[in-house]
Nucleic acid binder design. Structure first.
Lengths: 247, 247
DNA sequence: AGTCATTCAGGTACCATGTACGCAAATGGA
DNA sequence: TCCATTTGCGTACATGGTACCTGAATGACT
């Protein structure tokens, strides 16, 4: 990149069609990002190294630096590409509950398709165009309810926190198993399993035990589980909206 | 470590007082962990490399591997050490709201003292003794309310999600500034600032704009802000507890 | 057509990191 | 005193991001 100022990647758009001397670019930011996403989907984000991405494209690692200033910026681009898959109507429908349910499901789908997405999202304060688009849709769902912007922001935050947390739980040890190279079943049985059993059998944490042993939602299908938790969060939000009257 | 099985660090307790031949250990897991925590507090978790920790202790990097199987396990130990600072009464007081407020404040304090804590906690599914202790206290706060264990788990999850999310926001670009090596003021002004301004001025996301420009809670002191958000989450939980009657 | 500033491709190299391996030193029991 | 055992840690390797540099491609201008 020409500019080496420490500034956000979103302020350094790719040099588009250019007229003038100089060799024509053989790759593109989007192509590189797409390749990185593919690798990360299949083998985890830690496998998406500069060398590996370049190799996949049939070029050398340093070529990528013509398109992306640093590897961290590539993460931001990956996040935005994944967020671009979240399909939403142009504006809110008028029913906040339905709109937020749609948003939550789309987000979950993207998070499962790209198991690295939520982790990157929470570790990097990025504000790419697609994140902004999605966020704006979430905020707009509450338009017309007469709510304060601070309340709206808080509700959207609550929803986001639940969705992210639920996705993390759903991916959870699946990803951890892949990271350590064990297959998921073996990981649960040999790695975390025995420890949890030991904790349970010690009896030192009775309520933790109940949450492990007596849980009913644990036996639900993941999608049902997500849906159920989501409904409770939306109930909580509804309970806090004064214009809906008491209860 | 003797055992090289891929098993949780919590299943491999440190070899304590031993009688028999062999040189005596010169260090300890706790000492190493404490050193790692100090470095991470001061310079970020990425500065707590094996060589650096060892250097601080006046020894070689490989010596640490007599006490900790892998660096990732050291992260688990760091998390648990930080969690051990969360001081809680032995049992719940009977008022769930007060207990959870106490817990939230203690967690916030630990999260601010150790800016890496929340990030590690969300990136690693670890269940150290102190995490279990804290979690058990949170669950126990709802004892006697007649709630289902699944509901209790959900409420504790909601609280945790809020607390973690709020701490992340509060640390937020402070940490990001340190990571990039810029001082915080310069970071806000030169790095993220101009981009946010550009987005705002584009007018493409009107509700995002309002959340940036018209927010009233943004001007509160961090502690008030945290407290206020916490109260709303507790309100939401209260609204979902059926035994409290309608509103 | 020839010259040249400009831009891209990518090899080489440097430094930092986690950690496997091996050997020397220390230690207490026989 | 000998020896099995355990710790301390230097060496070495693989892997990572990325600075630097050379050469090739390209279009404008003379």
């Amino acid at each position: 990149m020409a500019d080496e100022e420490p500034t956000s990647i979103w302020m350094q758009p790719e040099a588009h069609e250019r007229s003038g001397p100089g060799r024509r670019p053989g790759y593109s930011r989007e192509q590189i990002t797409r390749t990185a996403v593919q690798i990360a989907d299949a083998e985890g984000v830690e496998a998406a190294t500069m060398r590996r991405i370049a190799g996949e494209l049939g070029t050398g690692a340093m070529s990528l630096y013509r398109y992306v200033p640093r590897r961290d910026d590539l993460f931001d681009l990956m996040i935005d590409l994944a967020m671009s898959e979240i399909e939403l109507p142009d504006g809110p429908s008028g029913g906040w509950r339905g709109d937020l349910t749609l948003l939550a499901r789309q987000t979950r789908a993207a998070g499962l398709r790209h198991p690295w997405l939520i982790a990157l999202l929470t570790s990097r304060p990025t504000l790419g165009p697609n994140l902004l688009r999605v966020h704006e849709f979430a905020l707009s769902a509450f338009n017309g309810t007469g709510l304060d912007i601070d309340d709206i922001t808080r509700f959207v935050g609550m929803l986001n926190d639940y969705v992210h947390s639920a996705i993390r739980r759903e991916i959870g040890w699946l990803e951890e198993a892949r990271r350590t190279g064990l297959d998921p079943e073996r990981w649960k049985r040999d790695y975390m399993g025995p420890y949890v059993r030991q904790v349970v059998e010690s009896g030192a944490f009775p309520l933790f035990n109940r949450s492990v042993l007596d849980s009913r939602t644990a036996h639900l299908a993941p999608e049902e589980r997500f849906r159920h938790g989501l409904d409770r969060i939306l109930d909580a939000i509804a309970a806090l909206i004064p214009s809906l009257g008491p209860c």
